[in-house]
Design a protein around this nucleic acid. Structure first.
Lengths: 386, 386
DNA sequence: CTGTTAGCGCTTTCAC
DNA sequence: GTGAAAGCGCTAACAG
């Protein structure tokens, strides 16, 4: 017992003004000794603030998501906020599609929505929420968000392949049927179209296939792509994959067809996955943990600023990491490559040439380093960086 | 307004007995219409239960961890519990090492400790906690837990290599200096020693190196391993990696040395990582999501049972998935393989032989399927399965 | 079956 | 600079 009134203890422990130094010290000591810790529930009840923020995401075990979460967690921990994780139904798995927004509002002071298809109201109606929301990976009208410019990402990847001389470039990455609401794939596809057209190439619809964002999706799409062989259909010489996981699936499938990268086909992915260098995968990397950090800061700022600022959207940069999975156009185009080609045909390692190309041979981007200055796309200026 | 007293509303909404059907209906309807939702904080204040559980883990972006979290989340969501995520300092990253246990106790009804080195009191002293704890991945005296038998895992992996005829087998996977408290690596190493000895092979200390659990660690350890070349030191013909990520790093390093898998070296990992098949990696898989599910159920049961049951430890099974990264002992042992070998030496794809071996060519274990019946190692019988 | 009464542990006026 | 009192929104115990 410090011998002080609850009011004084409360003030002292929270560092509020109006407490003498000696009192504060005594209180802190007593608290320490008694192992006293204020009840968050009781505090929340009076103040209306829970000191927790929620994060809703369709997955947690995909690299992109868990990496973002780490970034978020870093900032929240540092600021004394707790992190609540909410799953939200997306794919095949039957999760609680409904996620009660009213319950959310009372549990957290703010919400981070990570690649959630907010346009689809069946999933969640965040607008009804009474707490600030910051989206990550997608942008929603009237809400703050942090994301990469996916059209630009698509353009960069495709342009890289064009620069290498490729003209027949496939895009494997369209969304699976259900989620047109989720615009990432659509934007990257658009960037692909743009780059092609401004190079004078008309996109060939037979070169685009659905994948979702999984390894399996990439692998299956590649098989579907090749199933078009014959009938005068011409093989692409390069493939742009909507994300690194899909690219990995594609590379696996390529090996299954006894083709080689980049000798027969070049492959480019997106994300800057931690594992990408293991595959010598060329990728358009985006700062992943940083997006988590930035979003968390944006949200806390929005929570703690009176009056609330208008929503702002932070766009982070992306940049190409060149590795050995992309190379020049093969000489012998469309050698009728098919399942028929026997193993005797193989002469080199799966990835041709030196294990890695000069220079960028093994770029493992330190997350924050690769981020060009995030530029604020909307009104209020947030120098949100590190 | 339903026109009923708060008490009745409370009872009705929580489905307690002693409320007429008509009243319940009226209340529910009114609540629905008003968008009313009971405040968790207020409820927590009176009942002392928060309806949330906390999960502490050193990382979230490593596959094993995020996969476990998904399993946990599945069960919690289904049971109406919230999930709080707490980082706990482990590696280089400077996280809050201290993680205040008293604050935790008031925020959650129970705690899941995922591969947390509880033996090291500097990290966290869970015993002081006033809430039930279930550990995952490690066992602690007097606490419930779910884990794989890591000695057995080490034995299985090593035995597989012995069966293939290998006698000179390296173990890359010892813990980095700081965390001897974290027994996973130690146990797997012990299993390795056991298997070797019962095959009449005395473990060679020059074949064991520290890696931690990262790709980088694996890569670096392999380089260190090979740096022992000369001086009559004999190359191993196979490597047992403490986890799949380490194995991937090793395979990358092997490629850097212009050696081939499994022609020059066999590699076996542990975990059954989602990506393992992409590398044709032989691995001792463990049910990961299942461990999360089981732990969550165990915890909820512990929370909701009066009087509390004695702690129980669930041991889940592991099983070998054979792929192309492990093969018979190479004929030409120790061809003085070193960095000096030029690229001209390469004749085949990184992974020799058919892309995948017969049969198990591409086993992607459905998590729950690979789990042999979890057997309860301790007292109380928990049929915790699916 | 339903309503009334306390009180959970804090924070916040408002006095002193 | 400190304390007293009221109340946040619920639930539990007891009446009726």
């Amino acid at each position: 017992m410090s011998g002080f009134s609850p009011a004084t203890v409360s003030r002292a422990l929270r560092g509020l003004p109006g407490v003498s130094a000696s009192t504060r010290l005594a209180v802190e000591e007593a608290a320490q000794q008694l192992g006293y810790f204020p009840s968050p529930s009781a505090a929340a009840l009076t103040t209306g603030r829970t000191n927790a923020i929620g994060l809703i995401a369709p997955w947690v075990s995909r690299w992109f998501f868990s990496a973002v979460i780490e970034g978020v967690q870093e900032v929240l921990t540092e600021q004394g906020y707790d992190l609540l994780l909410y799953p939200v139904g997306l794919t095949g798995d039957r999760r609680a599609r409904g996620l009660d927004t009213r319950s959310l509002a009372k549990r957290v002071d703010g919400l981070l929505a990570l690649n959630v298809p907010l346009a689809d109201p069946s999933v969640i109606s965040l607008h009804e929420l009474r707490v600030p929301v910051v989206t990550i990976g997608t942008a929603v009208q009237g809400m703050s968000g942090v994301l990469v410019d996916n059209v630009e990402v698509g353009r960069q990847a495709t342009q890289h392949l064009l620069d290498l001389g490729h003209r027949r470039i496939a895009f494997l990455g369209d969304d699976l049927d259900e989620f047109n609401a989720f615009e990432v794939a659509g934007d990257r596809h658009r960037g692909y179209d743009l780059a092609l057209r401004s190079a004078g190439v008309e996109p060939d619809p037979t070169l685009s296939h659905r994948t979702g964002f999984s390894i399996d999706g990439g692998e299956a799409a590649f098989h579907r792509l090749l199933s078009q062989l014959g009938d005068g259909w011409e093989m692409p010489t390069a493939i742009f994959a909507v994300c690194d996981e899909v690219a990995m699936g594609i590379m696996y499938a390529i090996r299954e067809h006894d083709l080689r990268v980049p000798t027969d086909l070049s492959v480019v992915g997106v994300d800057g996955h931690d594992f990408a260098y293991l595959f010598d995968l060329t990728t358009v990397s985006q700062p992943v943990r940083d997006q988590g950090r930035i979003a968390a800061r944006l949200l806390l700022e929005q929570i703690n600023t009176r009056p609330p600022r208008p929503p702002s959207v932070v766009s982070v940069g992306s940049n190409l990491i060149r590795r050995a999975s992309s190379g020049p156009v093969p000489r012998r185009l469309t050698t009728g490559a098919s399942d028929a080609i026997g193993p005797s045909n193989r002469r080199g390692p799966a990835t041709d040439g030196p294990v890695s190309p000069a220079g960028a041979r093994r770029e493992k981007p330190a997350d924050s380093t690769t981020t060009p200055v995030p530029r604020v796309a909307a009104s209020s200026g947030h120098p949100e960086q590190q």
